[in-house]
Structure formats: C-alpha cells, structure tokens
Design a protein around this nucleic acid. Structure first.
Lengths: 356, 356
DNA sequence: GTGAAAGCGCTAACAG
DNA sequence: CTGTTAGCGCTTTCAC
C-alpha cells in the first residue's frame, strides 16, 4: 500500500542504500542520481517510515504528554505551549489523560514507554510521594513535571506558596479579614497544599487566623447546602474567598449568585490560574495568574535539553524552574469598609467597576 | 537500555519465538515454560515494543487527531471524547494542531501518515474544497471529520443550518427583528456558512432582511470602533446578536460592556457551541449547543468501524452523522418590547435575572 | 512444545 | 559515487 524505500529504489533503478542516502545525505550522491531518485520519490509519493528509523536505534522523536484532564483550560493552555515548540522542532506528541486516576497514570506511563518516547511531560496530583515517578527515575526515563510543586524532581511551575501569599495579602490590603480558602475535592495535590500554606502565612502575618481549606465539589450543579451555609451565614461568614483555581471560582460565583449574593459587594472572590476566560466574566475574575503556556514551553525546553544531552550546560541550574506569577486585578474584589459587620444585601447593585 | 525480547529469551533460557508465543498465544506453550518466561518478563520489566510489531505489518493502533486549536474548549471537549474511547480500546492518539493554517494542516497529515496512523480524526476550515482530503481519499487513508458540515465526506456534526435557524427563530420569537450575525475572522468555514444560511432562512421566513455576517477579530483586546459603531449606533442598530461561536460571544459581551451597554437590556446575545463555561457567566450565555464530547465519541466510533472493517455493517448509513443540537436558555436574551425604538440606556441596572 | 530463520523499512558500515 | 550486507525488535511460517 504505502510505498517503501524498496519501491523507490526499483522505480529509480538504484539500490535502497542510494535512496536512503539521497534522503539523508543528499550531498554524498551524484546530482544526476539524486535527481532521478527524487523524481521517483515524488512519483510514488514516498515518505520514509519512522518505524524503520526508530528500529535502527535512532531517536523516536516522540514525547509523551500526560495530563489530568483537558476540561480545565489550564492544561489545554500548557499543551498548546508544548505543541508549538514540539512541532516546530520536529517532535511528535503522544497524549494521554488520567483524570488524576492512579491506574490511568500507570497505564499511560507504560503505554508511552512501550512506544519508546524519549521523554515525558506530565502533571500529577502529588509529585513528592508519587511512586511512578520514582520508577521513572530508576528506569532513566527523562521527564519534566508541569505545575507540580516539588523541589525533589524536575519541574516547572510558579511558586504556589508565594503566589497564594501575594494574593491573600492583596485581599487583606483591601480590608478583608475573614478570608476563607476553597479547594476542589482533589485537595490533596502538592500545589493545593502550597497554596494553602501561602494563604496561612499571609493570614498569620496580618494577625488573622487561617482556616482549613473548605472542600467544594467541583462538578456538582449547585453548591452543597453545607458549603453555602459556611459562606453565607453566621457572624463569622467570610467576606472574601480565595479559590484554589479559576474553574472552582467560577462555579462558586455561580452558586453564590443563585443564592442571591452579589459579587463583589457581598463576597469578594480571588481565583488562581489566570484563565483567559476569567477576563470575559462579569464581573471579571481577579486571579493569581500562572503563565500556563510559558510553563508548557519551558517544560518542553527543559525536557529537550535533557533528552539531547544539552542538559549538562544547564545542570548547574536547579532541578526546578520557577516562573513568575502575577496578580490580575478584577472586579470580583471589592474593598471592604472598616465597618466590618456588613450583612448581605440585595437592595442595590454596585456600580460595575470599569476596566483599568 | 530497555530490555528486548532477546534479553527475556536469554534470561528464561528459551528462544525468542517461545517468548513471543508466551506473550501473544499463551495457550500454545507449555505451562511450565510459560511460567518461566513470565517470570523473566517481570524480572526484566520487559514490554514488547510496538515498533517491532508494527514493522511486521501489524496494525499500529495509532490514530491521528488534527485540531485547529486547543484554545477553544470546543475542540478540547471533542478530544476528551475521543481520548476516552481510544484509550479504553487500546489505541493511542497522536495530536497535532494547525491554527487553521493550510501549511500546518499539510504538515500534520504528512507527519501522521509517516507514522502509519490507521486513521485520522480532524477538523478543517472548509471540508468541501479541501485538497488534502481528496488526497486522503486517493491514498485510502481513512478519516472522519468533526464539526465540518459537508455531505461529501465522512463527518460527524450537528446540523449547523438547522441549529442556527432554530436559534434565530427563538430570538425572533422573543420579539427581536434587527438581528445581526457575527462571525470570527475565519468566517470562511463550512459551518459558518451553514450557520449564516440558517440565520438567513429564519429571518426571511419572518419577513425580515438578513444581513451579511459581520466579521469580528477574535483576538483583539477591544472590539474595533467600526464594529462597535455597527452594533451601537444608528436607528437600525441590532437588538440581538447571533454569534457564530461562544468564544466570540464572550468577547463581544465584554466589548459591549466596556462600551457601557447592558446585556441583555441593550442587546441580546446568542452564542453557538454550548460551552460549559458559558453557563458560569453572568448573565449566563444563551447558546445553541453542540454535543461536543459526543461528537468526539461518535467520530471515534465511526473511524474505528471503518478501520476494523466493521464499516460494512454501517455502510448503508450515510456518510455523515448528524447529532442533535439543543438550545440553552440563558439570561443574555431578553424579550423585546413591541416598542422597537428603545435606545441604549445606562441609567438603571436591570434586575438580574435569576436562574431558572 | 520449541527452535531456526525470514522478513517488515530503514540506516550504516564496509566494499567496490 | 554506489551496492551489499547486517541488524534494529518482533511475528510467523516451517521444521524438528
């Protein structure tokens, strides 16, 4: 069906070796021959199969990418970054998603190893304690983590602790004192922990008492009554929420709105991720931004450096690369009056805050 | 480095043939031998390389996926659908994105063919006139299109014309008469054409005059002054916008808001795609929903049927599969008073419409 | 029940 | 400059 190098050789009247050379080292073959071979290649529409090459022990130029999900644009954005560089540099990506499921993670890694990927770019729930990563280390398969917050393994991410710290300090600067952190049900991730740590530090430094992260079911249509109660009732109800990611923030915003709370008047919201989408919301979502695409790009570059051995040049740099985060202002955060006892109201709409 | 079948054979004290059989046809080998071989496999952590298998003319179990971009969740959702089924059925995906660029499309197809993918799932700008697809037909490489609206080629999509028709009729039923369709700058896609056709038909049927689609630059930070003028000034300014996709709708909403228009009071908005994200907006985006994940799943199933030859059983069914669309109500659409000359106002905020 | 050997598409010595 | 040949990891006859 698909023509092989043999077909080309026959068609051109030369040996397969000459055809191979014509492809891989054109300067070593007689121009006339070269021309004939090329014509045959065109005529048959021949494309050398990477299989043969790979089998010869050549590099597969295949990189595996393992992501929790594509439903969260954070990962889609990373993937875009990777894909951009990879395809420009002649590598192919093999993609698998895991939904944070350990079995699927294992399966993905095995599958990709079978395919002899030269390296792996991945995001896992918890990098420090992940047994599969130890296995990779043992097996000598190169990998770079994205977003995982660990110093023990090669990774690219923002400083989650510091980023959360900065964000929560900003909330405090806006006069908020009762600030609660919300996390998804998969709160056990390394970055969620770091974010909570940053939150706690910012609170403590301001003389405030941090609370444990409140877990919220991401996928539920509505906020659960118990969560809603936490957020809306009692004298200690929070005036601001720090959500461990933007998708969560959006779900929470919807829930609060359905409960007739107004944002930011009744509740300020700060997200984490900096999804482009958030800017399109109304009010626009304030968020701690990670440069997702850049994280993908950087992960790619680091992996490639290691794969091609250029890594030595980098080897003095640390295992982990920390990219700068930024705070995105947004109308979901309001300054709070010093009079701290304001209760939820729905009598008047706040003026919509214009964009800076 | 990675152990081969030879290593296993040596370790187990049998020939590679026996090892191969132990893996692929366990019942044909002596139980005792089988056991030894398996122990060696475990000991060496051997995984058969798909390369060897593929080279032997076996199926590669590799499917290529070509998508315009992952920045639009529509495609990420499709990909999720594909990935789900594919990985469950032991296939791998090789992903390439094109940004709708013809060169990149060509490159992607070539690359994937080189890798001997068994089939292709893809979305292109315009399927009817796409020369590369003709090439695929000639080459006998199986493929299924997603979202492309054509009867000439294997595809899975909604009925874009009918969907747009339904949506615009809904706007008309809400009392709108000056309805404009907005399209991205890549308006030349087959589905954009079908959507405009549906829009036109709905308009005409109601005795209204359809206008050409207004092109809007998706990526610009702000709506261009000329576009804004179209939307906001003059006695014939539209009261409702039908946006050819949700992302565009969101960008337009932001632009209108910055121009101090209130949605839906000053302008109703209807999107297309049914992005989950849209429901989290405020007001929630009304949209014509395509079952993106299901489209991905269906495309996978059709491709697999063709690849495995099961296709014959399906061959009586048509080339194209049309999945049902649905209308998602949302607060971005307001009923319009019969008094049709209302001008934009910013004196009072509309009461926020509660969720249904 | 097991082994020897051929061959898949290709590259890389090594000859000529 | 070109051809011959071996071998990459594996499956699959065909003998034994």
């Amino acid at each position: 069906m698909t023509p092989t190098i043999k077909d080309v050789a026959a068609h051109a009247g030369f040996s397969i070796a000459t055809v191979s050379r014509a492809i891989n080292a054109p300067h070593t073959v007689n121009p006339v021959t070269l021309d004939k071979v090329r014509q045959s290649i065109d005529a048959l529409n021949f494309r050398p199969s990477p299989l043969g090459r790979q089998l010869r022990g050549e590099r597969t130029r295949l990189i595996g990418v393992i992501l929790p999900t594509l439903a969260n644009p954070v990962f889609a954005e990373c993937l875009q970054g990777i894909d951009e560089l990879a395809s420009a540099q002649g590598y192919r990506l093999m993609l698998m998603t895991t939904q944070y499921d350990a079995d699927r993670e294992r399966h993905a890694i095995e599958t990709l190893r079978e395919h002899r990927v030269e390296g792996l770019i991945l995001t896992v729930a918890d990098a420090d304690t992940h047994p599969l990563l130890d296995e990779l280390d043992r097996a000598g398969l190169l990998y770079v983590l994205m977003h995982n917050d660990t110093v023990r393994r090669p990774s690219v991410s923002v400083d989650n602790r510091l980023a959360a710290y900065d964000g929560v300090r900003m909330l405090i600067a806006h006069g908020h004192r009762r600030i609660l952190m919300l996390a998804g049900t998969l709160a056990a991730s390394d970055r969620a922990r770091q974010r909570h740590l940053g939150y706690s530090q910012a609170m403590q430094q301001a003389g405030l008492t941090p609370a444990p992260a409140l877990e919220v079911d991401f996928n539920a249509e509505e906020l659960s009554p118990s969560v809603l109660a936490h957020l809306t009732s009692g004298p200690n109800r929070p005036s601001a929420l720090f959500c461990s990611n933007d998708l969560l923030a959006m779900v929470v915003m919807r829930g609060l709105r359905r409960a007739r709370l107004q944002i930011p008047h009744d509740m300020s919201i700060l997200g984490f991720d900096g999804l482009a989408m958030g800017e399109l919301l109304s009010p626009a979502l304030a968020s701690i931004c990670a440069p997702n695409r850049a994280i993908g790009c950087a992960a790619w570059q680091r992996l490639l450096a290691r794969v091609t051995g250029t890594y030595e040049a980098l080897s003095e740099t640390s295992l982990t690369l920390t990219l700068p985060h930024s705070l995105r202002q947004g109308a979901t955060i309001a300054a709070i009056s010093s009079r701290d006892d304001a209760t939820p109201t729905r009598t008047s709409m706040p003026a919509e805050r214009p964009f800076a």
